[in-house]
Simulated scan of single mutants.
Amino acid sequence: MNDCTEENRLLWLSFLKGDQDAFSTLYKNNYRMLYAYGRRLQMEENQIRDIIHDIFLKLYAKPDLIKNVTTIRPFLLVSMRNAFINWKKKMQRQTDMDVLDFDLHYTVENEFWDKEQLMDVKKKVEHIVQQLTPRQKEIIYLRFLYEMSYEEVAQIMGMSEQAARNLVYRTMDRIRKDNLQAAFALFLF
């Protein structure tokens, strides 16, 4: 269990015992993660803030929504994702899961010796990312950037753990086959 999960667990247990400050800290500790996830889902800033606020209001009013204290972070991300999908469906009147246009941004540290090399790597990563479907982008984001377990990824994306493993495998296989010489660049961000 990573530190974030353990801290969330301890804060949640403190909140359940009546510590209001623990709930406030839980909100503050997870706000950035949820905000970043909302931006990657291409939500508007006001919409993100409203959804985060609503998620925590719902948790405050109904703490029994968290069945297992180790699933707080996945619960928050699933709630964010579901709120976006519901909003998108309402706006576009679509029920297809591909309404989720996941935007996988990347960052490359300035550890490169010259700007040409940096630009070359950015172009390669951009090319790789453009070839991925929205679901592939999302699973790579959750699995490798947030370093989430397959169980957590599966819970967030509404699929079985084996389906999550298969999707990661197929995505990585596609990257390797399509971009053999540039595949390493995806993991530099």
Score class of each variant (00 low, 15 high):
F15K: 03
Q20A: 13
K90I: 03
M1C: 08
Q130Y: 02
Q42L: 10
R176D: 05
K123A: 02
N8G: 02
K28D: 00
R73Q: 15
L100V: 12
K62W: 12
R39L: 09
Q92T: 11
K122P: 06
Q94H: 09
L34K: 02
A182Y: 02
L180F: 06
V125E: 03
H53K: 14
Y37W: 10
N30T: 05
R9A: 10
F75A: 04
T133D: 14
F184Q: 11
K90M: 03
A154K: 02
E161C: 05
K88T: 08
K124E: 07
E44S: 01
K67Q: 15
R39G: 01
K122V: 00
V121E: 06
N30Y: 06
K67A: 14
V129P: 01
T25M: 03
K62P: 02
L13V: 11
M43F: 00
M33H: 05
L57C: 15
E152I: 09
N46H: 10
K89Q: 13
D98V: 10
R39Q: 05
K90E: 14
V78Q: 12
E6L: 12
W87E: 13
V168F: 09
I51T: 15
E138A: 04
Q181G: 00
N46T: 02
M172S: 04
F75K: 07
E126T: 00
F144N: 05
W113L: 15
C4E: 11
S79W: 04
N30A: 02
R40M: 05
R135H: 12
A164D: 04
E45F: 02
Q20P: 10
V121F: 11
L167I: 07
Q181D: 07
Q136L: 03
K137H: 07
L180S: 07
N46Q: 11
F15P: 12
Q155C: 06
R176I: 01
F84D: 13
E44A: 08
I175W: 02
A83R: 08
Q162D: 06
L118W: 13
D120H: 14
I175C: 00
N2Y: 04
V108T: 03
Y37P: 06
V69D: 15
L142I: 06
T5H: 09
E161Q: 12
N8R: 00
R165H: 09
E45N: 15
T171K: 03
L77I: 06
A154W: 03
F75W: 14
Q20R: 15
E44K: 12
M43S: 00
M157H: 08
Q181T: 05
D96P: 02
M119T: 14
E147F: 10
E152H: 10
T171A: 08
M80S: 06
Q94A: 10
K89E: 09
I175L: 00
I128H: 03
E147V: 06
G18P: 12
Y150D: 14
F184C: 09
V99K: 04
S149T: 15
F84M: 14
V153L: 04
E138N: 07
D114N: 15
P74W: 09
R32Y: 06
R49G: 08
Q130A: 11
Q47T: 12
A163G: 12
A185S: 08
S160L: 09
D64F: 11
E7A: 11
N110S: 08
Q92P: 03
K90Y: 08
M148L: 15
S79Q: 11
H127C: 01
Y150I: 09
M43N: 04
A154D: 05
D114I: 10
S14V: 03
D98A: 12
F184P: 00
T171Q: 01
W113V: 15
I128V: 00
R135D: 06
V99A: 04
